[in-house]
Every structure is written in C-alpha cells, then in structure tokens.
Design a protein around this nucleic acid. Structure first.
Length: 688
DNA sequence: GAGCACTGC
C-alpha cells in the first residue's frame, strides 16, 4: 500500500495557486451585447423596466419604505421586485450617505445573476456601484458598492463582524417564502437590530406567496405595511384527476403521451420525487416510443441536481424544430432552475425531504405529499412565457383535504439546528429558549443541538456560553460543527493540519467525487484503486484531493475525466481547503499549516474521532454487518464507500455522515481503534 | 450486497 500513501507524504499544499474562475461562467449577460449603440440600449432597457409590474407601484413602494421600518412585499416571480426595488431605493437617495442597500437571496446563483442584470440596467460595471457577495466570489467594493446582492448566509456572517449591520440603510430579504434556516435566522436578527436602529434602518421582506400577514405580524404591526405587486404573467389552467391513480409513475407517462397527442406545441415539465422515479418514467416513455412513431418527436430529458453539466445544458437549450422537450425533474425545477419554453406541467404531488430524527441524531429522506403553496409554485412554471396547463396527478378533493398542508414544514422545524445555535450564541443570544424566533423551533431540536455542541466541547453547559478555546473559533468556520472540531483539533491536539484541511474540505462536500459512467463500471472501479487507502474513505478522499491539487490547473479537467472524478466537486474542495487555510491563518495558525502527520495516519484518524465520536459502529462477526455503538441499530456501508467492495472490514469504524433512505447507510468511513474512544471522548464513553 | 431531495457559509 506504500505507493498509495506516497501522495499524502509528498504533496505540497497549494497555497495561493490561482484557479480558473470556473464559477464566473454562471453569470451571463441578461441584455446581451448585440452591437447596439449605448443610447438605443439605454432606451430599450428603460422601456423594459417600465413594463414590469413593479413600475406601477414605484411611488407606493417608496412611500411605504419611507414611512415604515418594515415593508412586506408580495409579488410573483417576474414582477421585478428583486431587480427594480433596490434601484428605486438607490435613485431616491437611500444609499446617498455612504450606506448600502442589501438584497439577500437563498441561493448564490440568484444573487450573482441579479447583480449582473441590475448593473447592466444601471449601465455600471459589475462590482462597482452594483455588486454581489457569495462564498468564493466577492464582486463588490467596500467603498463603491451601493446595491449589494448576497446570500442570506453571507449577510448572517457579516453580522458576526458588524452586529448592527451598520453598513446598510436598507436590508431586503428576498424570497422569504423559502423559509430556509438562514432566512428565518436573518428575520429574527433583523427584528433585534431594528430595536436599536429604528430611526435609520429599513427592512423589506419580499415573498412570492400571499402569506404576508405572517411576516408582518412578526414585526410590530403598527410599524409595518404590506404592498402587493400583481403580475403572474400568464394564466395557467388546472386539471385534476377524476379518481386517484394507482401508479403515479405510469400515470405520469400516460399524461405526457396524452398531452403530446392532443395539445398544441410546447415543452412538458414533469415533477417527480427522485432519481429512481425519473428513470422509471424515462424507461416507460422510451419503451412506448419504440412502437409509436408519433412519439419519436419527444425529447426525453432527466433533470436532477447530480446530473453532469453537459447533460444539464441540453435541458436549457432550445429543442430542434418539430421536437417537444419532456423534462423529468426533481424539485430543482420548482425554484432553483428555470427552464424556458415550458407550457405544460405534470405534477405528481410528491417530494423527497430531509428530516432530522432527534432520537437517533440521523437524517432520514422521506417522500411526502407536497404543500398547496408548493403545488402553486409548480403550476406557475407553466405560465412563464404564455398561458399554460398543469396536470395534477391527484384529485381536487385530495388537494383540498388535510393530505395537503398549506405550507411546507419549514427547515427550522425539521433539520438539525447545531449551526444555527452556534451562530446565535456567537452573536450573544444567551437564552435560546426565549429568543424571539420568526417561528420557534421544536424544543427537542433545540436541546439536541445544545447537547451536541456541549458534547463537542463548544458550549459550556454551566454558563451556556461558547467555550473560549473551541466554541468561539468554531462559530467562525464555515463548516458543520463536527467537521469544524476536526479542523481545530488538528492544530490543537493531533498535529495533522495538512491532512485534516483536505479531509474536512472533501467531507464537507457531502457528495462522493467518484463518478461511474454507465457501462464503464468495472473500469471506473479499477481506476479508483489507485487512490484507495486501507484506512478508509477519508484518507482515500485526501489522496484524491492531493492528486487533483498536484495536477497543473490547465489539465485538471482532463485528469478528472481520466480518473472518473467529478471536476466540479474537486474544484469546490480545492476552494474550500484554501478558504479553511485562510481561516486558520486569521486565527494565528499560519505556522501550523505545514504540519503534517507524515506516515502516522493514526493521528488523522484520531482527529476525526474527536469530531465524530458519536458516529461509531462495530462489526458484528455473526452476520457481518455493523451496528451503532449507541443504539445497537444496524447500519450498512454505503455503496460509495471504499469498504463496500473490500473483503477485510475493520472491527470498529467512525463515520462522517449517516442517512436513512432505503436502508440506514453510513458514509465517510474510517477505521478506528476502540481504545481511542475512551482516550479522546472520556465524557462520552465509559471504560467497559 | 447495490445507491442521495435541495441549498448554504
């Protein structure tokens, strides 16, 4: 195995090696550059701006913001609220005194795209008056930027340095209906900040749904106002099933065929819960195409997050003349991506959602009925460019029954709150039970998060404060708490900083970088052996990352292709490891960056145990399966793990993540010595 | 023996 380990020993960390900005590609010019002279271009832009629904409400919006600390805006996608309102505010002097106007988005691409478009509308260079700031990409200028688009997570991080957000005169929380933990946290923080800045801060909350009253009543009613911007561009006709269907997959395929045979041209978007369902419907339609030449003009396209960039491109490209695109998609197409040309939507009414199980501390992936507001959002995808139709694969009665809830269960009620708790503590919120949340989280989720952080040594349970040696630094790091603990302990205790930075960066991807192209399975697995370390997934992942970093930038893409690796993920891991190094430097550990464990891999393995000591499983020799130390529950090796296809399995393992899907699976697995447990986490393990 | 919805710092 020595050749396999050599990479770990010889590779130099690549501080400051500049990378091609593979992300700059995601911002495209909105107005294009079709050789228009600047006067014509200006006029065209002005005309286009005037036609947006927001324009009619310009004075009303400005009046509302002028006279109320909090304004709630309801507007459909396409109303212009995200692009126009910040400009109106800028034009009427809200950024005159050197202050900025912030507009937050749940997703990074949206922030970048909006900034690009607004800078074009205003005729300024992106990154000057108009800018954006998201992780790994800051196109803003501390002095010049007046309108700044950011993700809500980025603005929360700015709170850590500037708790009153004093750089801003207006903060607009856009897409608040998203209800991510970050959005909810930001709303609560803004309410707190408003108490101290009632005179000079304005908060705008914008949401696509009509549930504005909820946002308004959170803030003081007498100091807030609701403005509604109408503007669903085109009507969408809704069809329900007359009777419930037995098999929604067959029903989805049948509906697509019916639309194709009876309806006018226009692409079809089918919402399905997951990859499995997508591939099933795809196979069914392909089979029908075989015996029916009228179906040959259907272009069948799967769409989910894990799909390769080149395959995704086809989904966005215009179909050939005479062809009808059928996009079989997960929830990505509901909010994250927009596909032009869709006239028909088929909605099976299901979604897969992550739910954190407090009892086991493990995430489950459950298939659920969607909410009514989600159904509306899906339907709206049919009416973006012309009037459309939505075919709901459930009955009207079902839709109005308790089977469908009005809204989704927001993240704060169903996910682990460890990171949110850490952030709030760092911002000086002492009593998390009495904190004024936008929606209070379930108490059991809150106490689970507190216990977990206390177990990691980040919170002192007596005082309830972040610990000075660990907790305060942990809150600074853009990592899940257990991963942050590994990183900090690699400096403080285990002398394996170089390896830990790589390991933590790779694990924080949350996805395996190994790809298996269809039909080339054995080839891919054979090549993977070059990277595999007996110690498990984590060292293997470190080998992969070091191999990537050793490869000259210009041939990295090719190298990934050759070794069956996902270049997007590895590029991201390389960015994360550089970012983590700069955090360590800021914490005064510049000299530690070069510390390597050398051949003593046990140091890295112990370091991992210091973050993941709750995630330990023991091999049961009788049936050859692992069982969780805590509960005795059976947990299996995920097929992406190196141990999945290895005959000699370690007696004890620690794992970075677990997910309950078809079975309970563990990922990011490392062999450990059980003796380490009492040594590293004596408060958690008593000696047998 | 056989697989993960989607984000974000």
């Amino acid at each position: 195995m020595s050749t396999k380990r050599r990479r770990v020993l010889t590779a130099e960390p690549d501080h400051g090696v500049s990378q091609p900005d593979s992300e700059s590609g995601f911002i495209r010019s909105y107005y294009g550059d079709a050789g228009l002279d600047s006067a014509t271009r200006k006029m065209l832009i002005y005309e286009q701006r005037r036609r947006l629904p927001a324009f009619k409400h310009r004075m009303q919006l400005l009046y509302a913001v002028e006279n109320n600390p909090v304004t709630v805006i309801v507007g459909e996608p396409g109303s212009g609220k995200s692009t126009q309102l910040p400009q109106y505010l800028y034009e009427s002097g809200w950024a005159a005194d050197g202050k900025k106007i912030a507009c937050t988005q749940p997703r990074r691409v949206a922030a970048a795209m909006l900034a690009q478009r607004v800078s074009e509308e205003m005729g300024v260079e992106l990154g000057t008056t108009v800018g954006y700031s998201v992780r790994f990409s800051d196109a803003s200028d501390p002095q010049m930027t007046r309108i700044k688009y950011l993700t809500d997570g980025t603005l929360i991080r700015e709170c850590l340095a500037d708790p009153l957000l004093s750089a801003y005169s207006v903060v607009m929380v856009d897409e608040a209906q998203d209800r991510s933990i970050a959005t909810d946290t930001l709303l609560a923080l803004l309410k707190k900040i408003l108490h101290k800045r009632k005179a000079d801060l304005r908060v705008i909350i914008s949401s696509a749904t009509l549930d504005a009253e909820g946002f308004r009543s959170f803030f003081e009613k007498d100091s807030s106002i609701i403005v509604s911007i109408s503007g669903q561009p085109f009507p969408v006709d809704t069809q329900y099933l007359a009777a419930p269907c037995e098999n929604y997959l067959a029903c989805a395929a049948e509906t697509v065929v019916n639309i194709h045979e009876k309806e006018a041209p226009g692409d079809i978007l089918v919402f399905l819960p997951g990859k499995d369902a997508i591939l099933t419907v795809l196979a069914e339609l392909e089979e029908q195409q075989y015996g029916n030449h009228r179906l040959e003009s259907l272009l069948l396209l799967p769409m989910y997050a894990g799909i390769s960039a080149s395959d995704q491109k086809v989904v966005f490209d215009l179909a050939q003349k005479g062809m009808r695109k059928v996009i079989l998609s997960t929830n990505v197409a509901e909010t994250s991506v927009t596909i032009d040309g869709v006239v028909y939507v088929v909605d099976c009414g299901l979604v897969k959602q992550r739910v954190f199980d407090v009892a086991t501390g493990i995430d489950r992936l459950v298939t659920r009925t969607i909410s009514r507001s989600s159904a509306k959002q899906r339907a709206g995808r049919a009416g973006r460019t012309q009037s459309g139709k939505v075919y709901r694969l459930y009955t009207h009665e079902a839709f109005n029954s308790s089977l469908f809830t009005q809204h989704d269960v927001p993240e704060i009620s169903r996910l682990s709150l460890a990171t949110m708790v850490l952030t709030l503590k760092a911002l000086g919120v002492s009593n998390l039970v009495r904190f004024d949340y936008f929606q209070p989280p379930p108490p059991e989720l809150l106490s689970q998060a507190l216990e977990m952080l206390a177990g990691l040594g980040a919170i002192d349970m007596q005082s309830g404060l972040l610990t000075a040696d660990l907790g305060l630094h942990l809150a600074e790091l853009p990592l899940d708490p257990p991963l942050g603990v590994c990183l900090l302990n690699s400096v403080a205790k285990f002398a394996c900083v170089r390896e830990a930075v790589g390991a933590v960066a790779m694990l924080s991807l949350g996805d395996s970088p190994f790809v298996i192209p269809s039909g080339r399975r054995s080839e891919a697995l054979e090549d993977r052996r070059e990277f595999i370390a007996q110690e498990g997934d984590v060292l293997t992942l470190v080998n992969v990352l070091l191999g990537y970093q050793e490869t000259p930038v210009r041939v990295r893409q090719q190298w990934c292709h050759l070794h069956f690796l996902n270049p997007r993920l590895l590029d991201q891991a390389a960015r994360i490891s550089r970012q983590l190094e700069s955090y360590l430097v800021r914490m005064g550990h510049r000299d530690s960056l070069r510390i390597s464990c050398g051949r003593d891999f046990a140091l890295l393995q112990k370091c991992l145990v210091s973050g993941f000591f709750t995630n330990v499983a023991r091999l049961d020799k009788l049936d050859g399966r692992y069982r969780l130390i805590r509960s005795g529950q059976i947990i299996d090796i995920h097929p992406s793990s190196v141990y999945f296809s290895m005959d000699a399995k370690p007696d004890y393992v620690a794992f970075a993540s677990a997910m309950d899907t078809t079975k309970l699976y563990m990922q990011g697995i490392t062999a450990i010595d059980p003796g380490w447990l009492t040594e590293i986490a004596p408060h958690y393990f008593s000696i047998k």
